[in-house]
Design a protein around this nucleic acid. Structure first.
Lengths: 336, 336
DNA sequence: CTGAAAGCGCTTACAG
DNA sequence: CTGAAAGCGCTTACAG
């Protein structure tokens, strides 16, 4: 490091103390405006760069937040939805003079309950966990003393702060919309034993059926993935409903491809709605009517929570739901 | 910070000095094996966590690398190809006890030549710039004294280290492949004035034509995007070639959708090959024969270069090409 | 308004 | 093999 100008260098040139330089550069009281101005100008001239590390040392804060994404959510398979969320997170963090350090949690570490090195090296002041992790890993994470926030999933334990989309309500409104369009035989696509968001979306769908006095027909509930989360070939029932609620856009895409192959046209023969409004929503033909997850809002909540918890560790927010927004396209047909 | 155990705390409990603890924990010479063992056990017991910040301060290194992605490459539009690269980068960095800090460079900052705050705060020891930035911003980046590596693009200035896919060779081999399959009328899709990778791929395609004594037909060169990089409606020529080389999978996808609408079947009426092997390669029907960019290899090079330059600032690598690999699917038909 | 002193938690010579 | 001293670059009381 050659170009290493410190506050002391500036102080020496001006014949003042480094304390005064510190105050001036941080716009704190205790320096005359005149001197402050002089110092700022000289700092600029000398190409001074603030050393955030020193402040960190003093305060015991790294000003970094670790963002943990399980590797199965970070790959191509999931359309990097989570990477887009990560991007929003870093943007919000930056506006608070914080930075994100991404940690992809690989399956081996998850199984062996290995915490990321950024934890062991005190490189971060807290963790945002983005995407469902195993029960055991949740417990491991809980055991550490740093603030943490779960994003896009939650655990039955009430004492962990989490930010999730309002899956229940979104699916409920989606199903209502189908019913408004005359549909009475409505199926659901998603493995109910896979993730909590699939479950919640299912329950929202179910509530809408109940409210409208419609029977839940079990042959209309289709599996979309196996227990490891890998997508499987969707089995189309002999007896078809007039519409499907899919748990996500990618699955809707898979479903529509499958239906098309069987000569079933969407939306003419069968309507389809889904969740996420990711690339699959527009890539699919017809475009999908879907619930858009409010990524910005979720990221913003998660960041605000974690920063509040760093400042005051007694703060607690519980489970916070972020409402989605229906985006209308052409995958639903009015019938009846 | 309550649970703040330091080396000194361990030292005090054992009646030794913190120097000895430091040596023991870092497996350095100068401590008896016996004592070293004792120290390690106690550290574990006390829940000691190493403070990387202190080391950073001492050495003047943050052990972070800034990864700059222009925002236009980070959004949905580009299918987060770069976010996947970022993921590989962080993985390689972690294996070197380094961490990545992602900075999405927004268009305003790029225009105003605003350097990221992580630079001004000495939060990073170097930069990997991922994705083409403006000439002016390149100059700005060049002016800073930290090591930097350009990834997936390069500049005419020879003195900047960069890692890029071998676009020229990939397109050349792809076109050869089409010719082997009997094609003689081959088009190219991509705005030649947009990015250097589109240009290089075009030139590889052109070289293959030249080598096989095939004429370059200008009406077969189709624009895919405007000067801002936004995709445009592709204009299909009246006189069609029998095959197209597309500059990327997404554009191939757009092209195929367009052709399909016009009743032109791929690959029966027209073959298509492309670049990237991203989601669009498998989402498109038929699956695309395409060149896969070796993300791992590129990330690994970029990281190794930047770390080498941090250790020894005189190190220089120039422009390094990483070969891609053809993935064969069903978008090419043998003819003639 | 200005500054001397102490400290954040390590590591690097150097001395014993 | 072990440790006292100094220093990395700031900031926070506190004194003048």
């Amino acid at each position: 490091m050659k170009n290493n100008i410190t506050m002391r260098d500036i102080a020496d040139k001006l014949g003042v103390s480094s304390v005064t330089v510190s105050k001036a550069l941080n716009d704190k009281d205790g320096v005359s405006d005149e001197l402050k101005q002089k110092i700022k100008v000289l700092a600029e001239e000398m190409g001074y760069r603030y050393n955030a590390l020193a402040k960190s040392m003093k305060e015991g804060l790294s000003y970094n937040i670790g963002v943990i994404i399980p590797e199965r959510f970070a790959g191509m398979d999931h359309q990097s939805f989570y990477l887009n969320v990560y991007q929003s997170i870093t943007r919000v963090l930056e506006s608070h003079e914080y930075y994100g350090i991404l940690h992809i949690l690989n399956s081996k570490d998850e199984k062996q309950l290995q915490l990321p090195r950024i934890y062991h090296e005190k490189k971060v002041d807290g963790f945002i966990i983005l995407g469902q992790i195993s029960k055991e890993y949740i417990e491991k994470i809980e055991s550490i003393e740093l603030p943490k926030v779960f994003l896009d999933f939650y655990d039955e334990h009430a004492d962990i702060d989490s930010v999730v989309t309002d899956n229940f309500n979104g699916a409920y409104e989606m199903t209502n919309y189908l019913i408004q369009n005359g549909h009475r035989e409505i199926g659901y696509v998603g493995n109910l034993y896979s993730t909590s968001s699939i479950q919640d979306r299912f329950l929202g769908y179910y509530k809408s059926l109940l409210e409208h006095n419609l029977k839940l027909n079990e042959t209309y509930i289709l599996d979309d993935r196996d227990e490891h989360g890998s997508y499987i070939d969707i089995k189309i029932p002999d007896q078809m409903p007039t519409a499907f609620v899919c748990n996500c856009d990618q699955v809707a895409h898979n479903l529509i491809q499958k239906l098309t192959k069987l000569g079933i046209n969407v939306p003419d023969d069968c309507s389809v709605v889904s969740f996420d409004n990711d690339v699959y929503a527009t890539i699919t033909s017809p475009g999908l009517t879907t619930v858009e997850v409010d990524i910005e809002e979720m990221a913003s909540h998660a960041v605000n929570f974690i920063l509040a918890k760093i400042k005051d560790e007694t703060k607690s927010f519980g489970r916070v739901l972020v409402k989605g927004k229906i985006v209308y396209r052409n995958s639903v047909k009015k019938i009846g």
